[in-house]
Design a protein around this nucleic acid. Sequence first.
DNA 1: TACGATAAACTTTTT
DNA 2: GTTTATCGTA
Length: 740
Amino acid sequence: MKVNLDELNPQQRAAVETTEGPLLVVAGAGSGKTRVITTRIMYLMEQGVSPYQILAMTFTNKAAMEMKHRIGVGLKRNTGDLTITTFHSFCARFLRKEIGYLDREPGFAIFDTQDQTSCLKRVIRGLDLDEKNFPARHFRNKFSYLKNKGDLDAEPEFEIEQRIFHAYRKEMREQNALDFDDLLLLTCKILGEYEECRTRYQRRFQFIMVDEYQDTNKIQARLIRLLLNEKNNLCVVGDEDQSIYGWRGADIHNILDFELHYPGTRVFKLEQNYRSSQRILDYANEVISLNQLRKPKKLWTEDSGGLPISIRDEYSSMDEAENIVQSVIQIHESKKVPLNEFAILFRSNFLSRVLEEMFRRYQIPYQLIGGLKFYDRKEIKDLLSYMRIVVNPRDWTSFTRAIGVPSRGIGVKSLDKIYGVFNEGFNLKETMDMVIEGKILSGKGLRSLTAFRDFYNTMVENAEDLTPCDWLTHVIDELDYLNYLEKQDAGSAEYRADNIEELLSAMKDLEKQSITTLSQFMDFSALVSDQDEMEDNSPKVNMMTIHAAKGLEFDTVFVMALEDGIFPNQRALTDNPNAVEEERRLFYVAVTRARKRLYLSYARKRQTFGTTTSNPKSRFLLAPGESFEDEESDPFLKPVRPKAARPGARKFGDLSSQIKRMQEQLAEKDVDVDFGGVGGKKKPTRIRTGDVVRHAKFGQGTVSKTTGSGEKMTVTVYFPGVGKKTLVARVAKLEKVFDN
DNA sequence: TACGATAAACTTTTT
DNA sequence: GTTTATCGTA
């Protein structure tokens, strides 16, 4: 079958037809880049390139599967020989085959963030350091950033950090575990140091493509360079304006300086947008033009006009959420937009809570993408820990988990003793045998451990002749795990049992996709991304962080919580100016997800950490906001207040909860603060963000944030020349100069 | 040793 | 407002 290039625009077509040498495709949001990549792969194959010689790196497994599917449909042939994967999956597969070069076992475990943290905790405790002063999370981030820098032998700066770093590596090595960063690091190490291996891969992959190149980090760029042979047939596709992963080491210079790294690069710019209305694009262009670190680019579309963009000023986060739900209902019903064509985007995960509550109250089906991953749920991790100790008999982390659920009477004390043996370098089986024979435990502990060892041996035997799904079913039965869940917490048992059901059926499905061993399943479960978990065809409203929305598009998009301190978030505001640029790119990504309808909103009061805080509206809204607002032309623009009868509102008769609710509502209202007043006359004054106040010592300043209420209310004021000061309103006798 | 109650910390964003 | 750490008790 002939690949049809006629439907491509000239730039797209040129990108497809340029198959030799380095190629940079600058692909603006919605400019059809997935289409370019898939067509290009089909075109290559049509030119006689074997699918075996093609490698394409995508950002998520979902994107990879979609591409494979499209190519399979387009060419009407099996795509099994094509390598389209994510960086991490590629490396995991590589290492399962090649890790022998580094004198290591191929049965390694892939540790996720939780495992890493608990490993670091143990290490820090082992060094007799105080966990308060040396938080595991901090070092996890630090080491991860370090490993992604591209220098394979990078060391942390300070002596104490180095000690923790080395102890961590030693511990990981003893457990034969790799973290996400190790996957890339060790792959680069092998390819760099072993020429025989490198040439094998270089000879195989004649054509390499990388999607979302703006979000690759130094080590990923390095990996690509190691895989490339002298022909440099590399095509990267990306958009510097959508670079949003700087914090995990993504280096925007990879794409900005691509032509420097690869002399002779041909560049094609895709600026025609096939997704959004002109109105949305104008807004997006205006937003992103404020950034310095970019090459000029302007998206355009053949469709003119479009619906106006709504910017909503909400009183509280609850109002914001409720108005979003009501808009969804209205648009869904009157415009027949399917529910899965709605997305609500936010900066941080915690913001989803209000939304979820409101969607449940209105009984609108939704799915939350991201947050707690399916494979991170307690019941799933419990069961996977049994699988992991079978696959990798050195995984102490999973061993401690498995032996503790359901509890067997082996606690910290006994585990310490067992660890003493394990730490001598034995694997789990040997360790258990020795502890039992040497009677290192006694009484109940010994009996429990013996039973556990026997069960362990059975699991190992079963792994050889049962499919993953049957294997796990056996384990669940044997543990009487469902009963355990019931006993733990009857309320959540049903939900958790459903998850286990889902896990089993996922395993069955994957068996069809040739994931037939426990080890393959482990890799799969460790490397799923948020987007991979999204159901795209079920009628549910989507909620996710903007990071998780990368690459997706929807008819109607709500971007909520646009408040300084939340989006852009506080860290970005205090860190450095580049951070604000990255936040702005993030906002740009959010805006360009929308095809037809875009709603932006912020709330004057928001519940965070259990207290009410108040932030000024986001700086991203300021400049372009007004000129785009046009309340008359869109009936959905007006906030839907007063509310229709609330579904699920409190019933009569429950007096105490009614009183509590009234008190809450009173507390939500603007708080009256007593500022002392003049001549003994106490005059309560309201204070809000945006007010200008005078302080006896600091002079005049603008209120940028308020926290709490009443006696405990604190006010953050920006005093020009002095800086930001956070004051307890009751104590600092502020005089209001301007009322916002 | 397990489990409850209470205190403290916690919020960027993810493979 | 939620999760995690620690302490005290059965």
